[in-house]
Design a protein around this nucleic acid. Structure first.
Length: 485
RNA sequence: GGCCCGUUCGUCUAGCGGUUUAGGACACCGCCCUCUCAAGGCGGAGAUCACGGGUUCGAAUCCCGUACGGGCUACCA
């Protein structure tokens, strides 16, 4: 049997980290088994669902490198792939359940329901629907419906159903007491299907073989199992992964920082790194391997290795991992990736990149091992495109230090005499401590500040080569003025 | 309140009854490298396996309970 799995986000916002991981696991599972990965947009929350959000979610999934075999944009034999467009399948499903006595109309008002629930809960024990309307003879019920009385349709949980056992692929056997099962609402007064009814009908009619989702749905599973049974539909296999928490042990939310995948893209994280990191949040390849590519994930992914306990989102580890991927990039790709960041900073234009590609390629090794994500790049290379301003405190600490002026003067002279290549620049600057008696560290820091404006910079000799002789000498001369004043 | 799930270094995890002085990764600390910062190399500290009972010759691993955390308990999804 072909494996069919789905990712069914609600377009009420951008793709969240947790949703992204659910998508990855479903995708990896499908690809591992040569199955079908389906994307369905669960847009039944009309109030909050938007087309923009749907588009953003698709964009984020693609950015991650996930592809789907069936979905809203790709089509497929099991469409439509928007839940709102599947509403006409719920009515026949309900008819089936009416016919076999597994659905019944309920005329209880929300208010009486609420009151009964409160008293039941106060007494302790079962607080679900008390099945009042289940006792109404069907001809009476039909008459009331015909008379136009408002009603919902409820699931009739068989009284002899017994415990519902879910053999979860991640957590193993989970048993839910049958007598704690609620005759929950399938169809609302307005004729729309509730979540637990709609998803089951959708998953069934779309031929899903495995439902892989967050464990916030674990408690919904026995309810859904009973619906499958009432529909005489095959029950799919379930796998519930734990959720992602923030550092405080609460569900990850906005107050923990960026939670949408899009914001990570905007900060210059690489999709490969996010995929890798997210994969490892609740799954392990072998306990040792931390860096792996998409093909390895597909080859090795296994639900039995998915963790049962919640994982805490760790931005520092993501940073490390992203940095690691950045360092592994080849220079050409790096240049292409950094281009938009430098353009956005206003340093260069796309044309500059094409014209000076060699120059940019030289910049790569200097900056690659110093950033964790691409939005850190602009400040590090700013001195190459704009005139640095030297903070008074830096000026005092470095340029006005004893020997700094002498060192700058000597550096100016030595550099003026050489070709501007890294090796020659280094050789020239190394003569400065000898000729002036100024300590190398002091001399080099003076030059660094003169040229970059900062005490921390990219490697000095290489930086000077990239800056070029003219600009370098001008900046050192200007700094020398400051030093002697 | 009821039902369900979870609990191994700060964090992600390995571990599926003896091979464990509980392994790896991030973070942290130290040393090396070194023109600053990184990156890299080497080393270190860090977990009485939530707690309490069992079962067993033997338990992080199996069972029960307790605590704590989370989820569901809606005419939300």
């Amino acid at each position: 049997m072909t494996v069919r799995v789905r990712f069914a986000p609600s377009p009420t916002g951008h793709l969240h980290i947790g949703g992204a991981r659910t998508a990855i696991y479903n995708w990896a599972f499908a690809r591992h088994h040569g199955g079908v990965f389906v994307l369905r947009i669960d847009d039944t929350d009309l109030e909050r669902s938007t087309e923009e959000n749907t588009a953003a979610i698709l964009r984020s999934l693609r950015w991650l490198g996930l592809d789907w075999d069936e979905g809203p944009d790709t089509g497929g034999d099991f469409g439509p792939y928007y839940q709102t467009q599947r509403a006409d399948t719920y009515e026949p499903a309900l008819e089936h359940m009416k016919a076999n006595g597994r659905a019944y109309p309920c005329f209880c008002s929300s208010e009486t329901l609420e009151a009964r629930r409160d008293t039941a809960r106060a007494k302790g024990g079962f607080s679900g629907y008390d099945r009042t309307c289940r006792a109404i003879p069907s001809d009476v019920a039909m008459a009331r419906i015909d008379a136009g009385e408002p009603h919902v349709w409820r699931l009739a949980v068989p009284s002899d159903r017994g415990d519902i056992i879910v053999n979860d692929l991640i957590r193993g056997e989970t048993r839910f007491p049958g007598d704690a099962m609620d005759d929950f609402i399938l169809m609302r007064t307005d004729g729309t299907a509730t979540y637990n009814f709609a998803t089951v009908v959708d998953d069934w009619t779309m031929g899903m073989t495995h439902i892989i989702r967050g464990d916030d749905h674990l408690s919904n599973t026995p309810r859904q199992v009973v619906v499958y049974e009432a529909l005489d539909a095959p029950v799919p296999a379930f796998a519930h992964m734990s959720m992602i928490f923030g550092a405080d042990g609460k569900r990850l939310s906005k107050r923990h920082g960026a939670t949408s995948l899009e914001s990570y893209a905007e900060e210059g994280y690489l999709p490969e790194a996010l995929l890798n990191y997210l994969s490892l949040l609740g799954w392990s390849l072998d306990g040792e391997t931390t860096l792996f590519d998409r093909e390895t994930l597909v080859r090795e992914f296994d639900l039995s290795r998915v963790s049962t306990s919640p994982a805490v989102w760790d931005p520092e580890k993501l940073d490390w991992m992203n940095g690691s991927y950045i360092r592994e990039m080849d220079a050409e790709t790096f240049v292409d990736t950094m281009a938009p960041w430098l353009e956005h900073a206003g340093f260069v234009t796309a044309a500059d990149f094409a014209a000076s590609r060699e120059w940019f390629l030289k910049l790569v090794p200097l900056v690659a091992e110093r950033i964790k994500h691409f939005d850190e790049i602009a400040p590090k290379v700013a001195f190459l495109f704009t005139e640095p301003t030297i903070e008074p405190s830096v000026r005092e600490k470095v340029l006005e230090k004893d020997g700094a002026a002498a060192a700058l003067s000597a550096a100016l002279e030595a550099l003026a005499a050489v070709e501007f290549r890294t090796e020659d620049i280094e050789a020239a600057l190394r003569t400065v401590p000898e000729t002036t008696g100024v300590k190398a560290k002091v001399a080099f820091q003076a030059v660094r500040v003169a040229v970059t404006g900062t005490t921390v910079s990219l490697p000095l000799f290489e930086s000077l080569e990239l800056l070029g002789k003219e600009r370098t000498l001008a900046r050192i001369a200007a700094a020398l003025q400051m030093a002697v004043e």
